[in-house]
Write a protein that binds this DNA or RNA. Structure first.
Lengths: 161, 161
DNA sequence: GGCGGCGGTGATACACTGTAACAAACCCGC
DNA sequence: GCGGGTTTGTTACAGTGTATCACCGCCGCC
């Protein structure tokens, strides 16, 4: 689950997300269309990573079908604007919990029992990674770091049922 | 990065891989079947990450078709034995270049221009990641760290064509 | 007002990735 | 040879992502 202790305030709730997204788009002269809004809201509302098809289904209502391809386009847009992240190991998407410094590395903490995804960052990891890449003569363009395991809340729940 | 200077000798060649795989299997009482051998060879021969369907096609000959599902099973086996890695960001597979210490984190360096994948590791990154996870109250089960960028060889090639 | 371009959306089709289920073949110890 | 586990073949299918074309709405321009 998200908004876990240790991180109580770390996830902006859906309203904040939407407000931030609207501000970002206005600032950059981009359109924050209803579809994009809906997709972002769908991603932000559920605490866990959502597949594109899940989102499409969630947004579809009898009489108004939202095709996955539309969702993908909206997600591409949202990712370009840094409002949404993709979890490669899950083929799923989560809202970006907080504005990152541009280029800052993000660590995704994926709970295998509740499916919630938390974000962390570490200058230590980042520095070490940079030095490692440099030693290897490798110029990074972007990197993904995803950790699967058990979040604190789930671990407690398992110990004291 | 281990053995990898330009790129020429950077991939343990297929023969070494096969010999090591056979030894590992014998040691663990597992079968190193012809199919598994062929799949590992296909992964090891090409210097770059291979999709499961690419492998299937590569192993298929007129009259003898290898179905993707068979390739997946062989890959699952090879991954369990630590002989092959999966690149989540590419849905592709590479041979494990060298035996890792069990549980040791691996960093994948994926060249976006030549498609080659190199492996690196760093106690510094690993330590920092461990401390970050601990601070977050998160118990890791396994993690993936993949960096996309330009390898040294390709960067040189681009500068001086 | 008409016209053309441009970005966004809808819709269909398709390619790629991965898994389930079942049957047949194989191997090994008894 | 027989029984039981493992491996492979085969088919079908679920899930993920992209290509293509048509249409719409908007804005600037003539």
């Amino acid at each position: 689950m998200h908004r876990h202790e240790g991180h109580a305030a770390c996830h902006a709730d859906a309203d904040d997300m939407l407000a931030r997204a609207e501000a970002v788009c206005r600032e950059r002269g981009l359109q924050f269309t209803p579809l994009r809004r809906d997709v972002l809201e769908a991603v932000a509302e559920s605490g866990k990573a959502q597949g594109a098809y899940d989102i499409a289904e969630r947004l579809s209502a009898p009489g108004k079908r939202v095709a996955p391809v539309s969702v993908y386009r909206a997600l591409d847009f949202l990712m370009e604007q840094g409002l949404v992240h993709r979890i490669a190991s899950r083929n799923a998407f989560i809202p970006c919990a907080h504005g990152h410094a541009p280029g800052e590395g993000v660590i995704f903490l994926i709970c295998r029992s509740c499916g919630g995804v938390d974000e962390a960052s570490s200058v230590e990891v980042e520095g070490g990674l940079g030095r490692t890449l440099e030693r290897a003569g490798f110029t990074p363009v972007h990197s993904i770091l995803e950790v699967e395991g058990d979040c604190g809340a789930c671990r407690e729940r398992m110990q004291a049922p």
